[in-house]
Design a protein around this nucleic acid. Structure first.
Length: 510
RNA sequence: GGGGGCGUAGCUCAGCGGUAGAGCAGUGGCCUUUUAAGCCAUUGGUCGAAGGUUCGAAUCCUUCCGCCCUCACCA
């Protein structure tokens, strides 16, 4: 650290700003590499000109020749620097380089005698000093805690990580394109809700000072999107964050990204078709046309996906029916999921989760759920105990949830009232009367779909943890001691800051 | 919250009762085609924290902190 500060001063003495400035005309390194002639040239002056910038990741000093590798967002390229080519002044700057610094290079693109694609430097521009060292060159940054807490290091030290997040963005862009092409309108609905709704989960609570009222970070956008169906937007979707104040796990982050889609005049079968088309397209684009491996599980993604009724799967796995109370309760007790307080359907659903869900490796649409566990879903006309709902499971993960939307305001109000009456701390505390009023204005029959985007990206990236697909996953706060930069400054400035962390930013008061 | 595991140099890791180690990174040299460059020399540690056991603790015990896995929770 101190040594790097000294180098920064020595750069200043050479008339170089240690934190650089604008550098125009740099090509992506991947593009430079593509333009490189296939073989070393007889006449090196014939090589194409090239200009690149990036972070110095390797440095091989040969005296009056230096090889270094610079990396940008697209790749890595070797830079070949000869004192004769760039001159004494520029070479003095090169000798002050540290791993992690940013450097701009202008020269020609050609292969070295050993065949390495290289940027043969004619001039260099110092673009920025790194005061802290980069991780070990061979292993990178492995410590998972550091990788999550200091993603900025993880991203430049581990190219796979950067690629995974670039892929994430690509997937989301493709989802938008897929829906846009089918006439769906992307919208933004409130993230702060006066009434919790659209799912069953504990919310984060906040407060709006201006109106002196409590607000909740949304647990789902559902009720607002369906208001838009009433408004006549007919086909809408939203991709954005939901917040749930619940347990964290490799598949749960307190804030997570959800896609919700609503299609007027559709139903859960139309959403099943839409979901299947989207997933088949994404799998084939990002993984492979037919087979995908996730965490050692090989799945067939060519489609069509298996479609199986909830009750059939239940019976197939259990050997008895969903409403065979005695056997179901006995099984629940045997599986240690029996809860004497819970309604029957909830207990039976626990049995379903234990017996069926944990085995759903191949992509499977499970449909026709018991109505009692689906408060926002329309019941089947000829089977009033069955809700028109499906969930898509892939590799034992619930990845999508969809249903034919309940659009009867009277029924909806009754179901809300029943929820509120349960006193379940995950049920809404009050009825959303405005939502009921919206339905009363006439919501078209519709299919609605929710897709956990983070989990989908996990599948596409073969990521074991949701933290591997979220740039800055939630981590418990740790009180940082003042960083190396502050400490060195304090040393430098003398005793003024010697009273320690109290005066430092970051670790103290919000 | 329960159970299990981990925490040693900037990074990746050995060491597991007897003087704190290696590689990489760093620092000083040599070298005008190397690529995990090489060669010589060298700096660097409250062994996560605090107690305890012991002649002696990175090592054994207790508590705490953080992370990972797992269970619970999570339509």
């Amino acid at each position: 650290m101190q040594e790097r500060l000294d180098k920064a001063r020595r750069l200043e003495a050479l008339g170089v700003d240690p934190f650089g400035a604008r550098f125009d005309g740099a090509e992506p390194i991947a593009a430079l590499r593509e333009r490189c002639p296939d073989e070393p040239l007889e006449d090196p002056t014939a090589a194409p000109a090239g200009r690149g910038a990036g972070r110095v990741m390797r440095y091989r000093d040969h005296g009056k020749v230096v090889f270094l590798d610079i990396a940008d967002r697209t790749g890595v390229i070797q830079v070949y620097l000869r004192k004769n080519d760039i001159g004494d002044d520029a070479f003095a700057i090169v000798q002050l380089l540290d791993l992690g610094d940013h450097l701009g290079v202008a020269g020609t693109v050609q292969k070295t005698r050993k065949g390495e694609v290289s940027l043969f430097a004619e001039s260099v521009a110092f673009l920025g000093k790194a005061m802290l060292p980069i991780p070990e060159k061979w292993h990178g940054l492995r410590d998972v805690e550091m990788r999550y807490r200091r993603r900025y290091v993880d991203l430049f030290a581990n190219p796979d990580v950067r690629d995974a997040f670039v892929k994430r963005t690509g997937v989301i862009r493709d989802i938008r394109a897929f829906l846009d092409a089918r006439g769906f309108l992307e919208v933004e609905t409130p993230m702060m809700h006066p009434i919790v709704g659209g799912a069953a989960a504990r919310p984060f609570i906040t407060h709006l000072n201006a109106l002196d009222m409590p607000l909740y970070l949304r647990i789902a956008p559902e009720l607002y999107l369906k208001r838009l169906l009433v408004g006549g937007l007919e086909r809408v979707y939203e991709i954005n964050r939901n917040f749930r104040n619940e347990g964290m796990s490799p598949r749960h982050n307190p804030e997570f990204t959800m896609l919700e889609v609503y299609e007027a005049y559709g139903d859960y079968h139309s959403m099943m078709d839409l979901t299947e088309a989207l997933f088949v397209e994404l799998f084939s684009r990002y993984c492979g046309d037919t087979k995908v491996t996730y965490q050692g599980m090989e799945i067939d993604v060519a489609g069509p996906f298996r479609r199986a009724k909830y009750h059939d799967l239940f019976e197939e796995a259990a050997g008895f029916g969903f409403y065979d109370r005695e056997q179901v309760i006995a099984k629940a007790k045997a599986l240690d999921v029996f809860d004497a307080e819970a309604p029957y359907e909830k207990i039976a659903n626990e049995v379903f989760e234990e017996l069926v869900e944990v085995n759903l490796v191949q992509p499977t649409f499970v449909y026709d759920y018991p109505k009692a566990i689906c408060p926002l879903t329309k019941a089947k006309r000829d089977e009033p105990e069955v809700a028109e709902r499906f969930e898509l499971f892939v590799c034992k993960m619930e990845i999508a949830n969809a249903f034919t939307e309940l659009n009867d305001p009277v029924d909806q109000e009754a179901r809300f009232a029943a929820q509120v009456a349960t006193k379940d701390d995950e049920a809404p505390g009050e009825i959303d009367h405005d939502y009921v009023r919206a339905l009363a204005h006439g919501m078209p029959p519709a299919g609605g779909l929710g897709v956990g985007i983070d989990r989908l990206i996990m599948l596409l990236n073969d990521a074991a943890s949701i933290k591997d697909v979220i740039l800055f996953p939630f981590m418990r706060r740790i009180d940082e001691v003042p960083g190396a930069v502050d400490a060195a400054d304090a040393e430098d400035e003398g005793a003024e800051d010697a009273d320690g962390p109290g005066g430092m930013s970051g670790a103290g008061e919000p």
